[in-house]
Simulated scan of single mutants.
Amino acid sequence: MIEILAGIQSHRRRKVLGLLAGCAVLPGLSACIGGDMRRSKSPADWPAWRDFVQVQIQQDGRVVDFITTDRRTTSEAQAYAMFFALVDNDAVLFERIWQWTHRHLMPADTADDALLPGWLWGEGSVGKQALLDPNSASDADLWMAYALLEAGRLWRRTDYVLDGRRLLQAIAMGESTAVAGFGPMLLPGKEGFTARDWTRFNPSYVPLQLLRRFALEPDLHGDWALYPQQAAALIVRSAPVGYAPDWVRWNGTAMVVDPATGPIGSWDAIRTYLWAGMLAPTEPMRGRLLNALSGPLRSLHAVGGLPEKVNVLTGRGEGAEPRGYAGALLPYLKASGAGDLLRAQSARIPAVSSYRSGGLPYYERILILYGQGWLEGRFSFDASGRLLPAWSLTSGGAK
């Protein structure tokens, strides 16, 4: 499985979750939507997200990456879309995305089965849409569980809370392990990431704010209270000169270069800076992480951009900075107090009106939605990892 995963572009390899419970379901919409479903902002108030919905999300709730030959859908894409639908207070779209995810990415559908979702759906060799890889990816699973739990809290949907908890239980059972010499840790997926003398990690898969939120859930199987400090240790120990790698291996005593990918930080690693930048100012590990991830600051000061690929051992880079990187770096630069760099990176982000003509792809759109949306105050996270969407603070919605 390692050989297979190594040959796939890293930012496409994720998986999704879930099981529906507690609600009768109408086509495309749950029949038991509760709480304040009003949108505090009009659809035009978030043009980048509105354009994403129109271009990337089908009517049935499937998010499609159109630049891929198999017109793929990943569990990552479904999870991110659910998160942004929640930020936008769009309960109908959230339910539609979740329903498609549940029907198509889950390999089984029984009330007692809390299975992890397969990460890749697309056109197979005969041109038929199908689940192409049933392996899971924990980054998608974590974001999906988070979206469900927070949707349940904010919209007062007990069925979503139950679904989120089921997924966390499945993650604890299938995507976690006790790593010799390191301690309890979440794995990138259920298969292909461990061997007798090494464990493979992806630092961008473990956003601390999500792990903080999961630790609030009572009576869950797993080491959720320990995972935030373990994730921070992973990030710090894998960034020797301030740059996060896409992939890294633990050899029993140290974090070492992953032979499948080499010492490269690029499309996966960019999210490590994004998640760190969005941490609450009162997060105890925020300063430690930002100090450990000082490489992009140096690159931006030196050459005005972050190269597409960086050697995390030497700091040498290659390739021009993608447009999506600029979006991902906004929270990081804000948290680092780098106002001049923040303004320069903001200027690199294209206008929404040029997204389609400029061919801005799915993943770069996602990075911009996260970074720019956070900077614009559309959402934030508190020190316990709870989501604070702007609508919940201004419209009298659930807190």
Rank of each mutant, 00 (worst) to 15 (best):
K309A: 14
H102E: 12
V303Q: 15
G319H: 11
S346V: 03
L367R: 04
G22R: 07
W275N: 04
V25I: 13
P389Q: 06
L293I: 04
F52S: 01
Q54C: 08
L226D: 12
R153Y: 05
L234C: 08
Y363R: 02
L388V: 11
L369W: 02
P240G: 07
W49V: 03
G373Y: 00
R196T: 14
P281H: 11
A338Q: 14
V256S: 09
K41S: 14
A48Y: 02
K334P: 00
E364F: 08
A24P: 05
Q56S: 12
V126Q: 15
P389M: 06
Q230I: 01
N135T: 06
W275R: 07
H221F: 13
D109I: 06
L211E: 01
M185C: 07
Y370A: 12
G317T: 06
V257W: 03
L148Y: 04
D65C: 13
F379M: 12
T394R: 14
G181S: 09
R13P: 02
C32V: 09
G222T: 04
Q345Y: 05
A114T: 06
A260E: 08
G397D: 07
W198T: 10
S204V: 00
Q169W: 04
T272A: 09
A44L: 14
L387A: 10
F52Y: 15
I366D: 04
A225M: 10
L162Q: 15
S266E: 03
P245M: 09
Y362P: 03
H301L: 13
